[in-house]
Design a binder for these strands. Structure first.
Lengths: 213, 213
DNA sequence: CGATAATTTGACCGAATGGTAAATTACAAC
DNA sequence: GTTGTAATTTACCATTCGGTCAAATTATCG
């Protein structure tokens, strides 16, 4: 994939490697800020520091760029959930999962917003991924959580909604960053909010899942 | 505001009332789906069932439409937080707040997505509202929560992050509806997910805020 | 009714949009 | 260095975009 205009050669040069990297970086910047329809090729070309036709030499359409970007990012994005270990200590696994998701939100906010934009606008380009790989993975991990609940290791709860809650609370700090900053005020402007959030969320979820007689 | 092209008359006719209503309804539909930049006037005119120049007779620019829409919706959107009662029973107030926010997400998903799109894309049109009225309201209610915590009525916690957590978890069901549906599968397609979510969230937050010896 | 103001429309404009064609330049292998 | 291919640019095209204008149509009111 990402085959240049003349679709004859296999990826050879380091120059292709570099340019495609540049382009996807720029595309991430622009798509994550404006969504698919709001983003323009000219803008991406501008950010990437190359002419529009040159960019279109590497990705033939806006759609192709977006798809390549989604494909590349989706895997990384699901890593924390994959790392969720059925053999680990339940509360510790939940805690780690929250922390990892929060780290993603802090370190890769654009990736988070890329997905948020896409899903928010009806996920026209990734419906299959949602109903396929994503659902499968969630189903699998939900089963783990359910087993923990059934065996009395954590409180009984709906595992799907638990996962949704962890997703939403952590991604909030990437997707709604502007709002979070506005509400906290500039005195709280530093990155401390991520530590505060981690403390709050970990304790809230762990307490929420504790079993008291 | 919303003065027609010939800015001479005060709002007189019911026809203005009706048309502006039609337009804002259509604008909500389109803006909430594509964000500001992704939305087009033609599309809105189409959904509203009138010609583009006719629409522009009532709102002179795309910006004016968007602003009018935001203004109208923002108040409603903050109602649940305003209803948060300092004199109420803490756990019951939290519970009610969650429920009301969840009802908004269920009954007004487009309004939720309108804001989500706007904030996600950097809130270029509502920065003032965020830093002004929104921050003030949150500051006020955060103080209430802090007082509850200090007087031992609920567990000690960061009130701001608690509010963020309630916002994000509830709005998730509107903003990420497609994803939620995809993950839950069509067997869970009915509106039951809102009841499940309510049960889960209320119990999670209430337990998370309980004080055990 | 008639007049006056409000509403609606079709034609249109300049700029931006996604994308193309062809020609030119850089580059790697021999 | 020659040659073939990869990379880049200039000029361009059709469509869509936000928005205007003047004319036509319709409502309102005395």
């Amino acid at each position: 994939m990402a085959i240049p205009r003349a679709a004859k050669t296999q990826r050879r040069t380091r120059i292709q490697e570099e340019k495609e990297e540049q382009i996807l970086e720029a595309a991430l910047e622009v798509f994550s800020q404006h969504g698919f329809r709001g983003a323009t090729i000219d803008q991406i070309a501008d950010v990437a520091g190359m002419s529009k036709p040159n960019l279109l030499y590497y990705f033939r359409t806006k759609d192709a760029m977006h798809r390549a970007l989604i494909d590349r990012v989706l895997d990384t994005w699901l890593d924390p959930l994959r790392a969720f270990d059925a053999n680990g200590h339940p509360h510790q696994e939940i805690r780690s999962y929250i922390r990892r998701k929060l780290e993603l939100a802090r370190d890769f906010p654009r990736e988070s917003r890329l997905f948020a934009n896409e899903v928010l606008q009806g996920a026209p380009h990734i419906e299959d991924e949602l109903k396929g790989p994503l659902k499968s993975l969630v189903d699998e991990k939900a089963e783990v959580i359910r087993a923990w609940a059934d065996s009395g290791k954590i409180a009984k709860c709906d595992p799907y909604h638990l996962i949704f809650a962890i997703w939403s609370t952590t991604q909030h700090y990437a997707d709604f960053d502007v709002q979070v900053r506005a509400v906290l005020g500039q005195d709280q402007a530093g990155e401390g909010r991520f530590e505060d959030a981690a403390r709050f969320l970990e304790s809230m979820f762990v307490k929420g899942l504790e079993i008291h007689e």
